[in-house]
Design a protein around this nucleic acid. Structure first.
Lengths: 396, 396
DNA sequence: ACTATTTATTAAGAATATTAACTATTGAAG
DNA sequence: CTTCAATAGTTAATATTCTTAATAAATAGT
């Protein structure tokens, strides 16, 4: 708990005003006053400071009748830039985004198998290039990274693929660039992107974004705040057991969600199905089942292959089991899928929904939702930049 | 988001000071200043107001050498009273508690099958009696009630046994007694009791209190705050499926946790085991298996009955499945059992632990904890009074 | 008695939000 | 064209609060 000084009080009220302009703008001072319950003089004072900083600008007049026209204020979207970094792929990606999370400049650096210090130095290269290209003042650096992240300390405890352990990435970058640095797990950051830039309207339900890729993880937002876990580990659903007698997982247990609902798991099962079912070998994509990748799986599904359909349904069931857990713990929530697997569309989602309904209190599942994310491919980069928005401007 | 006025800033800082005295007291003004980072004049000012209100008092001097002795401040435990009400039992119970949650006066009113308006009027009788008996100023009314509660609106949406639906209990009581009223689900309130009055030291891990009684529910506290669900439903784990081909549950699904890990479920299974195993009928407690209750189950277990032991292990496994879900969603956490079932002790807990370990990421389960609550029989009453402490005084 | 040291209070100063008064703008009515 | 009602926005004065700086108080050792 932090004490409240007049300065902090002002900072907080400024955040409230800024958020109001960000979400409701263009908006007049008088209207801000009504919405926030702050008095007009305070609004004027606060506005004059954020206008002088260039974050907000006057953009014209509101139409009016029988009285003075109101001056409309709007956030100057390009007055600041955010550096969003996505370290969850085979290539390190980063971008400069504006205050709306719109990407202005992109940098991709192929990882080419690097890990450890070499990978770290690639992060520096990436951010160097972005800082170099910035066309307006930088508000900070946001990072989405796979693995266990202690967001409050800026420490990446474990990232298997990068062979990083207990890297104080936050401090390292903060010192090098002298900018605020915020980091979180890539799944969490993706959830933040949906929450901040997504098209959903109701802010009520807890939001869960499940990422199904090489591994499986979830980002959870409750009451507009990211659940980090204390200190780490919220949303680590990939190793929840979903098949009592399933295959062995790298974690040592059996039947983890990742063994079923991950690109690896799906491809493995499709292969197994096809191998046991030689008639399929006529299909051009699968003459040698070793060549199967997710694209091949999608095409097989589209061509009406029943084996693949079964695999997709199984995947949905596995995800449905976990969805039931999420709903039981968090209460009714909105669950969104992300990753290549989302391309399975309604077939997957309906299987998931059925399984969830079967496994959880009807009262809760009835008001819960399952769908796909609508943010697009840059979801992690944009989520990472949203981290900065949240912390620096208090926007949402 | 609420604007910050000087008045609110002061209120917040007062809360910080009060909390410091509550948790660290007896403590001197100078020490409070160091801990909270507020300056000595502010501390003096704030203290003088809460001392004049009687909530805090000077209780002597700190031993000192070579300098002026510090005056120690302490919360006047009995300067205010809290009304805590537990509506989750067959009799309605309530009590007057002091600021430490120590119970000063108790009222029990047998429900005798009443429900609906008759039950509501019994609540009035209960609170009437408590208000009557109050020996110092009342800070508010806290209520723990079974069912789905919208805490922010004070509405009880559903309480099956009481046959209540959408009762605005908060408003009703607030009007009748003109006191602040806070309510939450009985399981949530129990978690709050553990968090506020329990003996655990680290405030880090999320805390989950699982109540196993006629039904099963959990209260979840993350970062010192109760998760309510939005608007309701967090911790409703009773109807998470744990047996794929289990028995039918009242909720319409099959194999819910409640069908296994509840007093009903346990007694049902013990009966079934004994019925299929006639040699046991020699046992005096079970000559007619219809007479079995939880006491009989405990005695059978103590006498080394293998069937009952199996039932307990199964119960632990079912709870372990749910524990795995909790840990996967929330991250590592401390899970405490409460209710009659906790009497099974280590046998149950170890079964639960084993199953959880088998079903969740070792990194997370390793730093998670399973145990029993240490608050005692009045846990709901005390938790309900803790609700008032939190909201009115900001203590924890 | 004097001093060093810590505690606590008092007095003055700076920041902030509020109230009340005032100016500015706009379309419509006279 | 002037006046008026209504709303937007600013200015000046006031109150609250936290902070800094100065002051008083207490205590054990010298």
């Amino acid at each position: 708990m932090q004490k409240v000084t007049p300065r902090r009080a002002r900072a907080r009220n400024t955040q409230i005003v800024l958020k109001t302009i960000y979400t409701d703008g263009p908006i007049s001072r008088a209207e801000i006053s009504r919405v926030t319950d702050l008095t007009p003089p305070t609004i004027s004072e606060v506005d004059s400071t954020i206008i002088s900083k260039g974050i907000v600008e006057e953009v014209g007049f509101a139409p009016s009748s029988t009285c003075r026209r109101a001056i409309l204020l709007e956030v100057a979207d390009d007055s600041r830039q955010l550096i969003g970094v996505d370290l969850s792929r085979q290539d390190f990606r980063g971008a400069l985004a504006n205050l709306r999370g719109q990407i202005k400049h992109r940098v991709d650096l192929p990882l080419q198998g690097r890990d450890g210090d070499a990978a770290l130095s690639l992060v520096y290269d990436l951010v160097d290039a972005l800082v170099e290209s910035a066309s307006s003042a930088l508000l900070g650096i946001g990072i989405g990274v796979p693995g266990l992240v202690d967001a409050s300390k800026g420490v990446l405890h474990q990232s298997v693929n990068l062979n990083w352990r207990h890297i104080p990435l936050g401090k390292l970058l903060q010192k090098r660039y002298n900018l605020p640095v915020y980091m979180a797990n890539d799944c969490q950051v993706a959830a933040l992107a949906v929450h901040t830039f997504g098209a959903h309207t109701d802010d009520e339900l807890p939001l869960v974004v499940i990422n199904v890729g090489w591994g499986v993880g979830a980002g959870i937002i409750v009451n507009g705040k990211l659940m980090h876990g204390t200190p780490v580990g919220a949303g680590e659903i990939g190793h929840l057991t979903v098949h009592d007698n399933g295959v062995r997982c790298a974690c040592g247990n059996y039947g983890c969600l990742e063994t079923i609902a991950s690109t690896r798991g799906i491809i493995r099962r499709v292969k197994a199905q096809l191998d046991g079912n030689p008639r399929i070998s006529k299909n051009e994509f699968t003459t040698i089942s070793d060549h199967i990748d997710m694209d091949a799986v999608f095409q097989l599904l589209e061509s009406g292959n029943e084996d693949v359909r079964q695999v997709v349904l199984e995947t949905g069931q596995a995800l449905g089991i976990v969805a039931a857990s999420l709903v039981s713990v968090l209460g009714s929530c909105r669950i969104l899928l992300r990753g290549e697997v989302a391309n399975f569309g309604q077939l997957l989602i309906e299987a998931m929904r059925d399984e969830m309904d079967r496994r959880t209190l009807p009262t809760l599942s009835r008001v819960s939702d399952i769908g796909e994310t609508n943010v697009g491919a840059d979801i992690v980069i944009r989520g990472a930049s949203a981290l900065i928005l949240h912390h620096e401007l208090g926007v949402l």
